[in-house]
């Protein structure tokens, strides 16, 4: 187990290295990417620009710039170009909103996907299955921001069920926190519920014809027990691995659109603003932070996987 962890750690470091190099290089090659011009202001003299270049080290060789950047990331002293503030503190400010959004949505979409998928599988071919299938397919094809916008329009603007936008910290008011997040949670979950329930439905239908299910029936188990203990458990395996990666993506700032639509002021929104401003340091940090989370959660999912499917062994 310890060796497994060590091996995963080694892999993670390599992944993170490449992610950082690529992200860094992308901002070197995009047009209009010279940060010194923007840093120095609109009517800067060549002298000011030269000073800025020297001050920020833009004249150094590219690998030195990269090393400087990574060094600052590790010491937590990255300063953004546009606001000249510490990036880490900005991210810390946005983290509660992003975590609330991701964790809530992750739980919602997993639970609903399992319920919908199992229901479809059990009632395969019946009315309820066809209805849910139709809804799932609609959900899969609906972009998140459309769902979010429609939700906002009907449930917050026309009928004042939910607040329009913004984020209220959990510590301030649990009720307000919840009400502010309901619409974002739903708009983020809808696609995943649709997708996961389809996968679960087909896996379950496959597994229902497995020999061991027939064995379970021959043992005298009730259909409900067969379904839960024998069919559902094995069918959850693919869902769990999908969930791990998607959840990691969302928590790592992947819910940019939802955060922007609902003005949650989370990490995703910070990333969106930084992209608009071509502000490299925050983006580097956010990407690295997301990558670390993805790698970490992927490792956790692997462990979960072994628990769910003992045929997969960490060793051997």
């Amino acid at each position: 187990m310890a060796r497994f962890a060590l091996r995963r750690l080694f892999q993670a470091v390599i992944v993170l290295f490449f992610v950082s190099v690529f992200t860094f290089l992308i901002f070197q090659v995009i047009p209009d990417g010279t940060p010194a011009l923007r840093l120095a202001g609109k009517s800067a003299t060549p002298q000011t620009i030269a000073a800025v270049v020297r001050q920020w080290g833009f004249n150094k060789p590219i690998w030195v710039q990269y090393a400087d950047m990574m060094g600052r990331i590790f010491t937590g002293s990255v300063i953004s170009y546009s606001e000249h503030v510490n990036v880490l503190s900005q991210i810390e400010r946005g983290l509660p909103a992003t975590l609330s959004l991701a964790i809530g949505a992750g739980v919602i979409w997993f639970v609903f996907a399992v319920v919908v998928g199992a229901l479809c599988a059990v009632r395969a071919g019946h009315f309820i299955d066809r209805l849910l299938t139709l809804l799932s397919l609609t959900a899969i094809s609906a972009p998140t921001f459309v769902v979010g916008a429609l939700g906002l329009y009907f449930l917050a603007w026309r009928v004042h069920v939910f607040p329009l936008s913004g984020y209220v910290p959990l510590s301030q008011s649990v009720g307000q926190w919840f009400m502010h997040l309901v619409l974002p949670w739903i708009s983020l979950s809808v696609v995943y519920i649709g997708l996961y329930s389809r996968v679960l439905r087909s896996t379950m239908l496959d597994n229902m014809h497995e020999d061991y299910v027939r064995t379970a029936r021959a043992k005298g188990l009730s259909e409900r027990k067969i379904l839960i203990r024998h069919v559902l458990r094995t069918s959850l395996i693919p869902i769990v691995s999908m969930w791990g990666l998607d959840f990691a993506g969302v928590i790592g700032g992947g819910a940019i659109l939802v955060e922007v639509v609902f003005n949650l002021d989370g990490v995703g929104q910070y990333a969106a603003e930084s992209i608009q401003a071509l502000d490299v340091p925050p983006l580097m940090v956010i990407v690295m932070y997301g990558a670390v989370l993805v790698v970490l959660i992927a490792a956790l999912v692997d462990v979960l996987y072994v628990w769910l499917d003992p045929r997969v062994r960490l060793e051997a």
């Binding site: 043992k219 005298g220 499917d309 045929r311």
Partner: peptide, 27 residues
Amino acid sequence: EDELRRVRGGGMAMIFQNPMTALNPVQ
């Protein structure tokens, strides 16, 4: 069905052809 269930695996048990697939792999 519930009367049948009492017989299945109780008074009447079954052994299947393929032992590689007849047992639940994750239990």
